[in-house]
Computed example of a mutant assay.
Amino acid sequence: MPRTSAQGQSTHAPAATTSVEDYAKTIYGIAEWEGAAVTASALAKKLGVSNPSVTLMVKKMAELGLVDHQPYAPIRLTHAGHRLALAMVRRHRLIETWLVNELGYGWDEVHEEAERLEHAVSEVFVDRLDERLGRPASDPHGDPIPAKDLKMHYPSTTRLCQVPGRTQAVVEQVDDAVPEALRILAEQQVTIGSSVQVLEALDGEVTLAGGAGSGFSLSHDVAHAVRVSTAA
């Protein structure tokens, strides 16, 4: 799993179109937390495009030196592709943080807005936004934000659906691709950094205490979207 970036100044590859930037960011995102293998079918599903479209784009990215891909093998970012992906991740997560902190958006409203804005702003804007926000280490969903040198830190986490009962935990990250998880946790006043107690865990369904007060249950799909840290 990627933990830190390479160093250097240039973050954009030559001829990196909006689509290339989206693909690089998505390839990075699929493997981000657990190092999952990135297949063409997984990439097509995540981006909502056809497998042939992915094949053509991956071939283009390979020609640009952004991915290393052999037939029937996982798609891997090269050094240059990794830097491009992290630069886009930095833009996206800083914009999400700005939308929540200064424009009053909910954490379930910012993803699509950030997707639109991240390609339009300059590097100067991104750096000044970072400074304005106090150089945040993570975005509203708990995802780490790369610093200007593209370094960042990931906390040690476990998926909530894997935590046994009678365990105290701290919410570290919520997958913003699962709107139901964001909605339910917001309703229960559980945010990043909230302390919760796992009362019971059965077949992936989790019953928690914390947040608004009384116990509440999360389905396996929702609990799978939440990452927590627990005491050693």
Rank of each mutant, 00 (worst) to 15 (best):
T4I: 12
S5I: 09
G8A: 09
Q9M: 14
H12D: 14
A13L: 11
A16H: 10
E21R: 15
Y23M: 07
Y28V: 02
E32A: 09
L43C: 04
A44N: 05
V49E: 03
P52G: 03
A62K: 15
L64T: 04
L64C: 00
V67E: 07
Q70V: 13
Q70F: 12
P71E: 13
Y72G: 04
T78K: 12
H79S: 13
H82M: 13
A87Y: 06
V89D: 08
R93Y: 06
T97S: 11
N101H: 11
G104N: 12
Y105E: 10
G106T: 10
E109C: 08
E113H: 07
E123L: 11
E123Q: 14
V124D: 10
V126F: 01
R128Q: 11
R128D: 15
L129S: 02
R135S: 08
S138V: 01
H141Y: 08
D143M: 08
P146T: 09
P146G: 05
K151Y: 03
Y154W: 05
T157P: 03
T157D: 01
Q162A: 10
V163C: 03
V163H: 04
V163A: 00
T167C: 05
A169M: 08
V171E: 02
V171C: 04
R183C: 05
I184K: 15
L185E: 01
A186T: 09
E187D: 11
Q188N: 03
S194Q: 03
A201T: 09
E205N: 11
G210S: 02
G210C: 11
S217L: 06
H220R: 15
H220Q: 15
D221M: 02
D221R: 07
V222T: 01
V228T: 02
A232Y: 08
